[in-house]
Design a protein around this nucleic acid. Sequence first.
DNA 1: GCCGTTTTCGGCCCGACTGTTTTCAGTCG
Length: 591
Amino acid sequence: MPEPDKAPRDEKRLTNEEIAYTLHEIGELLDIQGESVFRVQAYDRAATAIRNLARDVADIYDEGGLKALQTIPGVGKSTALKIVEMLQTGKSSRLEELRKSLPPSLVAMSEIPGIGPKKIKRLYDELGVATLEQLEGAAKAGRVRELRGMSAKTEENILKGIEAFRQHHERILLYDAYPVAERVVTELSSSAAVERVDPAGSLRRFKETIGDIDILASSRKAEEVMEKFATLPEVREVVARGPTKSSVRTRAGLQVDLRVVTPDQYGAALQYFTGSKAHNIHLRELAKKRNLKINEYGVFDVETDKRVAGATEEEVYAQLGLPWIPPTLREDKGEIEAAAEGRLPKLIQLEDVRGDLHVHTNWSDGSPKIDEVAEAAIELGYEYVAITDHGYKLGITGGLEPSELERQIKETEEVNRRYPRITILAGSEVSIDNEGKVDFDDDLLARLDIVNASIHAGFNQDRKQLTERTLAAIENPHVDIVCHPTGRLLGRRDAYDIDLDEVFKTAAKHKKVLELNAWPNRLDLKDDYLREAKSHGVRFAISTDSHRLEELHFMFYGIVTAQRGWLGPDDAINTLPLDELKRLLGIGDVG
DNA sequence: GCCGTTTTCGGCCCGACTGTTTTCAGTCG
Ligand SMILES: Nc1nc2c(ncn2[C@H]2C[C@H](O)[C@@H](COP(=O)(O)OP(=O)(O)OP(=O)(O)O)O2)c(=O)[nH]1
Ligand SMILES: [Mg+2]
Ligand SMILES: [Mg+2]
Ligand SMILES: [Zn+2]
């Protein structure tokens, strides 16, 4: 788990990520110290729960105190008290205390693949190794093999682990991982020994970022499949190889895990390998209560050891009295309870989409012409598409001056006449300035079919200002949609500091729409925030923000993210038929 | 450390691969 960036804000307000990391750190040091694995797991579970929370822990505490914190699954009295201490003082005395007996740098060492708490403790106690650099030095100098139970092989593996870590250890975008996975799937499919192959793990759940690539195959000749896998052209190193499971590292440094089972085990294996881990554990606990046991080979009756399911995922879930649960929901965030009570949501699908409400052209910083967008949108089967080039105000490259926007509106009308099969909405993506005001005067804004408003500068402002700018845009009667409401760029920039509770409440009150920007490195609002906003009654525009025609396909990433946020077709406005959308946007109204 | 439609104590998912290993611990999925 990477250490979160330290916020450069004066008024320090601990983020969920920072609290989660501190809990993780405590757990890690306890693990190295040799504490009970269950206690260690408890810390990890609490950390994960807090990282996944859609609301700020600080807000939860402000509103409901200690009791409210304890309603977070995995957080009990003891953890809640630690959180309160962190919120009030910015630090944890438990962590400080642990750091007196163990150097904090040991936590980073556990990120090295193959190095766990036991090895770390012995290397530290017996060789004084406390940092990555010291570990590397000790391994290179042949000092590790002096320890009982360690050998030259151990040193070799440590050095390989360090090298792998240094080459690559960050999570990668779903968008970047998918092509790699598809190539491996295609290559494996070409083997006659392979019957089925599918991506599994976080890829199949369409998580926005991917830690590694997990692939499942079925075969009656597992050995042949493993041989094919280990010798794929992109493989640089085979990390592990057995009859049912192998792991490799690609030249790019990505880890790929392959599991191979027989066809009659495929459903159970797909269920297992799709995860998430928390979802699996929860299912397995349910199974135990029914005197059943689930593993990757099937569902078994504990008394008779007879297999009662396994060929399909449906069978596995059915043994627990559950309907099949879509992979995008399998995060143990209530989907198992919902399934048990027959209230799984009807999820939005790509086919539900009737248009894209955020597209750029060569009038501003995009590349296609308006009529090219029209043709591409027809090709996608859309009923409408909105042209939303940037306004001129904040020095956005290529932003449209008022006169240019007027000319563009005319051109849009003209293209609309040429393409009767689609409706092109005349729009703009205006920038929200430091006072919350947007481009263009009221008259011009009123002539537009659709106004998207975005924050494009001032990401380091304080929470109050960023929140007020956003609220002002929501309250502006000309603004229809607030775009990428947290401003995050995956791998580059965290969400800015903003009071989303207020944003969601205000958007719901004014019946305004928030964007789910489908750019693979934005996906903003993100899954958990979508679900939280939906609970306030907010609706969403799932938009690609395309600057090139190919990017219209980003809609797919928006849709799977919407599913992860438990959204149905009615939660998005771009699933509406044109006439209903027009009514919602006030098109045709005076003013 | 957390948790409870059989529990406030006594459990906590279940298995693969490696090599520290010859009956199992460590690490990882
Ligand atoms: N039952 C069980 N299943 C696990 C456990 N660890 C992992 N799995 C399953 C569920 C995971 O989705 C799947 C793949 O493991 P990964 O470590 O690759 O996790 P995942 O792909 O979900 O996330 P990632 O993006 O790779 O970090 O294996 C575990 O401890 N118990
Ligand atoms: Mg994975
Ligand atoms: Mg994996
Ligand atoms: Zn845009």
